[in-house]
């Protein structure tokens, strides 16, 4: 599964399971948050990524 901030790029290159990232320089983080909050956000994103991997899809899908 592809974590990518610019969704159209991910769609163009043909990724099938897509999770939008937070921002280009920190797709799986957010420097505005406290360290604890940031890790929480990252875990939440990764749980979503795991859900995507275990979900049956028939076409390109953004989660």
């Amino acid at each position: 599964m592809h974590v990518c901030t610019i969704l159209p790029i991910s769609l163009t290159v043909g990724a099938n399971r897509i999770l939008p990232g937070v921002a280009i320089p920190y797709p799986t983080g957010n420097p505005a948050l406290s360290e604890g909050e940031e890790l929480k956000l990252r875990k939440k994103m990764m749980l979503k990524a795991l859900t995507a991997l275990s979900t049956k899809i028939n076409e390109q899908t953004a989660f």
Binding site: Y26, T28, L39, R42, K43, M46
Partner: peptide, 21 residues
């Protein structure tokens, strides 16, 4: 801009979160 990834590389490669999961 590499500033954020240099501070914490997990922001690009989410190892800490995956290890906890």
């Amino acid at each position: 801009d590499p500033v954020y990834a240099l501070q914490d590389p997990d922001r690009v490669l989410p190892l800490d979160a995956m290890r906890q999961l």
